[in-house]
Nucleic acid binder design. Sequence first.
DNA 1: GTGGCGTTCTTGAAGTTTTAACAACGAAGT
DNA 2: ACTTCGTTGTTAAAACTTCAAGAACGCCAC
Lengths: 161, 161
Amino acid sequence: MAGEPRWLNDEEQYAWQSYLHATTLLEDHLDRQLQRDAGMPHIYYGLLVQLSQAPRRRLRMTELAQNAKITRSRLSHAIARLEKNGWVRREDCPSDKRGQNAVLTDEGMKVLEESAPGHVATVRAALFDRLSPEQVRQLAEICRSVADGLQPQGADLPWLR
Amino acid sequence: MAGEPRWLNDEEQYAWQSYLHATTLLEDHLDRQLQRDAGMPHIYYGLLVQLSQAPRRRLRMTELAQNAKITRSRLSHAIARLEKNGWVRREDCPSDKRGQNAVLTDEGMKVLEESAPGHVATVRAALFDRLSPEQVRQLAEICRSVADGLQPQGADLPWLR
DNA sequence: GTGGCGTTCTTGAAGTTTTAACAACGAAGT
DNA sequence: ACTTCGTTGTTAAAACTTCAAGAACGCCAC
């Protein structure tokens, strides 16, 4: 990390500023929209989405955490909260006595179905409606490159950190 | 928000997934790097950067909050923490008795100078080194479009929310 | 100058995330 | 079976953010 630091040039600085600016605003925007319309922050909504797409609407805690890119600890707290809301319930894993499955309840599914259209509309209005199809492809490619460079390979936890 | 919901097509879904994936990983990555090397999360670091670039290394609370895109409440708490660390101090605003200036201390400046090279290197490694110059321009343009659509015009607070 | 209204900033409480530690189980060798 | 080590998920405490409320000041019409 030492040596002569290679600072960002003007173009890079501008891009970095714009990136921070846009991602912050978008995240806040989505959080507020979902908090208002679905009663939960964006990340919690994402957990319900993951569960809804999984076979039998259930996932092992670790797998769900991996998909959502959060720590197991954070997931534990999140599921506790969603359980209190009745959107999710826990279930012992038959094959591994250590394991827990998070299961999307019917009520959780209902909340998801009710809030999904509004959420998609918000994402569309904030992002896709403002970009050309070409830009959508560019964004995907850029994000894929970045994500590839940050993948799991840390020593401490297998997949994060 | 009603009517037939226009769902995301395959390309859009892929882009959205990639976006969430990449931004989450990058944010976590930067937070951890700065927490480790500078003893504060990314957003706090950004506050010090803002102050360091301001005339006389000081800014009104509201202005700083606007620049950093956070609420005044959040900033109040953040500055309280940075003040406890000795990186920042508060100062009454001469022209407006309601106002407060956040001032970057010498010690804060030192922390910034020490951690900046490592931070830039991290940003570079995670982002710019993985993108072509063309992609950097594309990213900036995309982010600018998105940010433009989310600007201040909410009713409640003038500039956020 | 006084009342009314908006702005500036702070505060306490509740909710969320991080960090470190831990209990319980699984896997594999001996 | 026993030991060792890795994995799974949770928890308590500290740190951070959000939310609602409020104190203090500026501005302006009257």
